[in-house]
Design a binder for these strands. Structure first.
Lengths: 217, 217
DNA sequence: GTATCATCGTACCGTACGGTACGATACTGA
DNA sequence: TCAGTATCGTACCGTACGGTACGATGATAC
């Protein structure tokens, strides 16, 4: 407010960004404890710890800055659902869900995304607010968005009434299970699952949500 | 073979067990790197590092012994499915699946089980064979067992043919999603989900697997 | 009872880490 | 051009860790 950030426009911002970028790479690759501040400096091309501690009060604060940034600014799979408009008919609903599920599956199995999940779960006990923020920003939002999409479809009589919270958790949990595979069996070049795994799950869900219709029609 | 383990029957076994138990508690509670050998000794009531290194060549080997033991000897939720006999009719299938799903949900949300998952995913990059062993012993086996149970049911015309790999992943993944919640939002006493969440998922699955029957009958 | 071996208690080694201090140097803005 | 400051380069501090060494002490087996 009182004109504190005047004199340093581009230069300081650049070093700060490079430190953040280096820290992000190393934290996600090795975890919090296994990443030393010296290694971050070397990766960032910075030659003195004094520079790092000018921008971040401690290693913990740097970690929180990196993970907080990834939680809020990262393109996440929830956004795929947020963009979905209420479906017009069954065909449109199926198309929307299939596209979104495919994108989620692909995104979640990317190494950088897996590393984020791994780091979050590993450090959640030590950084509880980071884990909570991540949960409500990504998976929680996914459950909510899928659930409300299905609810909107049911209100338009496209699908039948059901426990949409359970349905959403099963669809996203099924996709998540592939990420867990990659998380537990790392490195060995397990090729990501083919997109038709997502298609199959959407079709099973929709099959459950239309069977009652068959009876009542 | 050549009479190496003769003289030390009860005493050495006891200290070894106490070291393993202490290491298990601390590794699961704090993780690998944050647990010092000194802390393990204190927790085990052992007064010299020499004793620890008599039984385990390194901290890594002790960690592998603990996690390997937990992977193979722990009562796991796959065993619940392995005990299931091929169902006689639809009612028996639903009963079996509901009971198993409830038990899995309860088991997976227990703190000790969550800590095992967290530790496995956190350390999988550094201990790849541990992660792979855990994956094939627990989640992989769960997918396989549920899938084959459903296949057996479909061969008896209890349910219709379907992509049972996807169905199994969705059912177990849906339950897993509750564990992920607890993993990411730790501590704050989030009460575990009620068992009827498991019931709802089983019913949705079965609804999808009977809808076609309605048509063909 | 005596030899054997596990454990004790303690001291030690080398290394690595998070964080601080400080003079020297390069850059930036007026 | 000059003042301010961000960065450099390096040295340092205190602590903690994994692992080793060794004599003393206790329990166990023959």
């Amino acid at each position: 407010m009182s004109g504190s950030d005047r004199g340093h426009s581009s230069r300081t911002e650049k070093t700060r960004e490079s430190i953040l970028a280096a820290a992000q790479r190393l934290f996600l690759e090795r975890g919090f404890q296994a990443t030393s501040t010296d290694a971050i400096l070397a990766e960032a091309g910075v030659s003195s710890k004094e520079t790092l501690y000018r921008y971040f009060a401690s290693k913990e604060e740097l970690f929180a800055a990196v993970l907080g940034h990834l939680t809020t600014e990262q393109p996440d799979f929830s956004a795929r659902f947020a963009a979905l408009s209420p479906p017009r008919d069954f065909r449109a609903l199926r198309e929307s869900l299939t596209t979104a599920a495919r994108e989620i599956l692909t995104l979640m199995c990317q190494p950088s995304y897996l590393a984020l999940w791994r780091t979050m779960m590993a450090e959640a006990p030590r950084f509880p607010q980071l884990g909570a923020a991540f949960y409500s920003a990504i998976p929680q939002r996914g459950f909510t968005l899928v659930g409300s999409l299905l609810r909107a479809a049911s209100e338009q009589r496209i699908i039948v009434e059901a426990d949409f919270e359970a349905v959403a958790r099963m669809l996203l949990g099924g996709l998540l299970s592939y990420a867990v595979t990659e998380l537990l069996v790392p490195g060995q070049e397990t090729q990501p699952p083919s997109p038709d795994r997502a298609d199959a799950m959407v079709d099973i869900i929709l099959s459950a949500l239309t069977s009652e219709t068959e009876r009542s029609t």
